[in-house]
């Protein structure tokens, strides 16, 4: 009994002291998506690297995805504890801008490995990728060579896609088809839907089903095969190169307007574009780092397909049309 009490007391003391220590050093709070913070994501390495140089604590809050982060910030408004949001993508930046909850990063932009030029006073990209259909070379010998072929070949491969209402790649495919087909996107979806095995809630479900052999191809990223090559030494998987080009996803971070430690937050954004951060990205987030030159990438990334030209719709257009496009998609797919 005595022992227990003493043990309890010691724990309590330790707890109080740890609070005291926390209060003394500043803590930078970063909202990001869940897989960024996980043990296998970039989070732990980024935290160690940044804390080593900032004499502060870096606290990641992992939310479901970019949409959740933005919603959470809107809900909290100026009461938010977040200093930085990391992990919005280009389909959300317009909406994020109109929320008025972000402050200028104030950085001069220099050398990007990101194709095209990046001009944005609020958001800074840290990595990017391209949507693509991934397949197993042993199972599918002749993948389609263009999006049009995928859509229009009725004998084409079966595919797994994600729901644009709930997932980022799902929305990406919607925009990709919009970019290629324009006003005829609904007809394209009607043709494609014949070969869609299922529309999953998120990327994980679709990719899991694909690995179980439920379909010939899955909507994912051009960089997905790199995971299998590097982590599993398995080179059976490849992304199909489409001649029209691949739709691009750019992941960005922004400085929260109400942050009380903007100095520290800007330091973090700067760190985000530094080599220390950028070299972590390829093999943890499995995306292309935004700043790092391509010859600094792991060698295996050179085996990946060349996604050019990169396709992207204007973010303001996406913000204003997204709902109508999703409704149109729903209409076609529910038939």
């Amino acid at each position: 009994m005595y022992l227990n009490l003493r043990y309890f007391g010691a724990c309590l003391l330790a707890l109080i002291m740890s609070f005291a220590v926390q209060a003394a050093t500043p803590t930078l709070v970063v909202y990001t998506y869940d897989s960024f913070t996980s043990e296998w994501g970039p989070g732990p390495q980024v935290k160690t690297a940044f804390e080593a140089r900032c004499s502060c604590r870096l606290k990641f809050v992992g939310l479901e995805d970019g949409v959740s982060m933005l919603n959470r910030l809107k809900l909290e408004g100026n009461n938010t504890r977040a200093d930085v949001l990391l992990g919005l993508d280009t389909s959300l930046t317009a909406e994020a801008r109109t929320s008025g909850l972000f402050d200028a990063h104030g950085m001069v932009l220099e050398s990007w490995s990101l194709p095209g030029s990046w001009q944005d006073d609020l958001f800074l990209p840290y990595d990017y990728g391209y949507f693509a259909f991934v397949y197993n070379q042993e199972r599918l010998a002749n993948p389609p060579s263009s999006l049009r072929q995928l859509v229009e070949d009725e004998q084409g491969p079966s595919i797994l896609v994600q729901d644009p209402r709930t997932s980022t790649p799902g929305l990406g495919l919607l925009l990709w088809i919009k970019k290629i087909y324009g006003d005829e996107a609904d007809a394209a979806w009607a043709r494609l839907s014949q070969r869609i095995v299922t529309v999953s809630k998120g990327w994980s479900e679709a990719y899991g089903l694909f690995l179980k052999g439920e379909a010939d191809m899955v909507l994912s990223y051009t960089t997905s095969p790199a995971y299998h090559i590097i982590a599993e030494k398995d080179s059976r998987f490849s992304a199909a190169r489409f001649s029209e080009g691949h739709y691009q996803q750019i992941e960005v971070a922004g400085l929260v307007q109400s942050s009380k430690q903007k100095q520290l937050a800007r330091e973090f954004l700067k760190f985000m574009l530094s080599e220390d951060f950028q070299t972590i990205i390829p093999t943890t987030n499995w995306m292309y780092p935004a700043v790092l030159a391509s010859d600094r990438l792991p060698a295996e990334f050179r085996q990946l397909i060349d996604p050019s030209p990169s396709l992207l719709l204007d973010d303001k257009l996406v913000a204003s049309k997204r709902k109508a496009w999703i409704d149109e998609w729903l209409e076609v797919m529910s038939r």
């Binding site: 869940d34 897989s35 996980s38 994501g41 992992g62 990327w203 990719y207 499995w286």
Partner: peptide, 19 residues
Amino acid sequence: GTPDTATLALVIYQQLGAY
């Protein structure tokens, strides 16, 4: 959101999301 440790169910989800 998970400021510190994730629960097992969430870990499963994180792992699925990371290949």
